[in-house]
Amino acid sequence: KYLVLALYDYQEKSPREVTMKKGDILTLLNSTNKDWWKVEVNGRQGFVPAAYVKYL
């Protein structure tokens, strides 16, 4: 498993997404889509914009 760092705040806009705050450390679950990565944060799984996170 990889960890990624939230570069920006992101507010979920659909039930498939998750909210994150700048500085959050997220567990990367799937990065096959170049635009949306599946992550786990605070016990929830969902998608965030790939451009908003970077590998640690």
Rank of each mutant, 00 (worst) to 15 (best):
L29R: 04
A6H: 02
L56S: 07
K1V: 14
L29H: 06
Y8W: 11
R16S: 14
G43Q: 07
V41G: 08
K34I: 10
T32D: 14
D9S: 09
A51D: 10
I25Y: 06
Q45T: 14
M20W: 02
V48T: 02
A6G: 03
N33F: 07
L3K: 12
E17I: 04
L28P: 01
N42T: 06
V39A: 01
P49G: 02
L29T: 05
S14Q: 08
N30D: 15
W37P: 03
T19G: 09
S14G: 13
K1C: 12
Y10F: 08
L56Q: 07
T32N: 14
Y55V: 15
K38I: 14
W37F: 09
K22W: 03
K21C: 10
K1W: 11
L5G: 03
Y8S: 10
E17N: 05
L3W: 12
D24R: 02
L28S: 02
L7K: 07
S14E: 09
Y10I: 01
Y52D: 03
P49T: 02
R44N: 08
G46H: 02
L5H: 05
R44M: 08
T32Y: 11
N42L: 08
T19N: 07
K34E: 11
V48P: 00
W37R: 02
Y55P: 14
D24H: 05
V48F: 00
T19A: 07
S14N: 13
K34H: 11
P15M: 08
N30Y: 08
M20H: 01
Y10N: 01
L3E: 07
Y8Q: 14
F47K: 03
L56M: 12
Y8T: 10
K21A: 09
V41P: 00
F47W: 15
K34S: 13
V53A: 03
L3G: 04
R44T: 07
D35S: 12
R44Q: 09
K54T: 15
F47Q: 03
Y52Q: 06
N42G: 12
I25L: 09
K1Q: 13
K13G: 08
L29D: 01
R44A: 07
N33G: 11
V41Q: 10
E17F: 07
V53T: 04
N30A: 10
R16H: 15
A6P: 01
G43I: 02
I25M: 08
P49W: 04
V39P: 00
N42V: 05
L3S: 08
N30C: 11
D24K: 03
Y52G: 07
V48W: 01
D9R: 02
A51E: 11
V39C: 05
Q11M: 13
E40T: 07
P15I: 09
L26V: 08
R16N: 15
N30L: 09
W36G: 00
Y52C: 09
K21L: 08
W36R: 03
Y55I: 15
T27M: 13
D24L: 04
R16Q: 14
L26P: 01
R16C: 15
V4M: 09
L7F: 04
G43V: 02
N33C: 10
G23D: 07
Q11A: 13
K1H: 13
W37T: 04
K54I: 15
Q11K: 12
W36S: 03
N33Q: 09
V4T: 04
K54Q: 14
N33Y: 08
K34Y: 08
L29C: 07
K54N: 08
T32C: 14
L56E: 07
T19V: 03
K1E: 10
K13D: 06
E40Y: 07
V53Y: 01
F47E: 04
D35N: 13
A50E: 03
Y10A: 01
L26Q: 00
N33H: 12
V4A: 10
L3P: 04
G23Q: 02
L56F: 13
R16L: 14
V53G: 01
Y10K: 01
P15K: 10
V53S: 00
Y52P: 00
T32K: 12
N30W: 08
V53F: 05
L5S: 06
A50M: 05
Y2H: 15
K54W: 10
E17R: 04
V53E: 00
K22A: 13
G46Y: 03
K1I: 14
L56G: 05
Q45H: 09
P49F: 03
W36F: 07
G23N: 07
L7S: 04
V18C: 08
Y2A: 14
F47H: 05
Q11H: 14
V18F: 12
Y8G: 06
K21W: 09
T27E: 11
L5D: 01
R16P: 06
W36I: 03
A6M: 02
L26D: 00
F47R: 03
V39M: 02
W37D: 00
S31I: 10
G43L: 05
L29N: 02
S31D: 14
K54H: 11
E12T: 08
P49I: 03
L28N: 00
I25N: 03
L7P: 00
L26I: 08
A6D: 00
A50I: 04
G46T: 02
D24P: 00
T27H: 11
V18D: 00
N30G: 07
R44F: 06
E17Q: 12
Y8I: 10
L5C: 09
E40M: 10
E40R: 08
L7T: 06
K22R: 12
K21T: 09
K54G: 11
Y2P: 14
V18K: 01
Y2I: 15
G23V: 01
Y52I: 06
L28I: 06
N42H: 12
Y52K: 07
Q45G: 07
V4L: 15
A51P: 08
P15G: 10
V48Y: 00
Y8V: 12
V39K: 00
V39I: 08
K21E: 06
K22C: 07
Q11G: 07
V39E: 00
L56K: 06
N42K: 11
P49L: 04
D24A: 07
L29S: 03
P15H: 11
K22L: 05
T32H: 13
P49V: 03
V53M: 06
Y8E: 12
D24E: 12
A6S: 06
N33A: 09
K1A: 13
R44V: 09
V48R: 00
L7C: 08
Q11W: 11
Y55S: 12
E40H: 06
V53I: 09
L7I: 12
K38H: 13
K38D: 04
K21F: 11
L56H: 09
V41H: 14
E17L: 06
E12V: 06
W36M: 07
A6N: 01
A50T: 06
N42F: 08
A50Q: 06
P49K: 04
D35F: 15
L28R: 01
S31E: 10
Q45S: 12
V48I: 10
F47I: 07
S31G: 11
R44K: 12
A50P: 04
R16F: 14
R44C: 05
S31P: 08
V48A: 03
D24Q: 14
L28Y: 02
Q11V: 15
K34N: 11
V53N: 00
L7M: 11
W36V: 03
I25E: 04
W36H: 03
K13H: 09
T27L: 14
I25W: 05
K22H: 06
T19D: 04
G43H: 07
N30P: 03
P49N: 02
L56A: 08
Q45C: 10
W36P: 00
V39S: 00
N33S: 11
L26R: 00
L5N: 03
W37N: 01
W36Y: 08
L5W: 07
M20C: 06
R16E: 14
R16D: 14
G46P: 00
F47S: 03
E17P: 05
D35L: 14
L7E: 05
Y10L: 01
Y2N: 12
A51K: 14
L5T: 09
G43D: 08
Y55W: 12
Y55N: 09
W36L: 04
R44H: 08
V4I: 09
K34V: 10
K54S: 12
Y55T: 13
L26H: 03
N33K: 06
K21G: 05
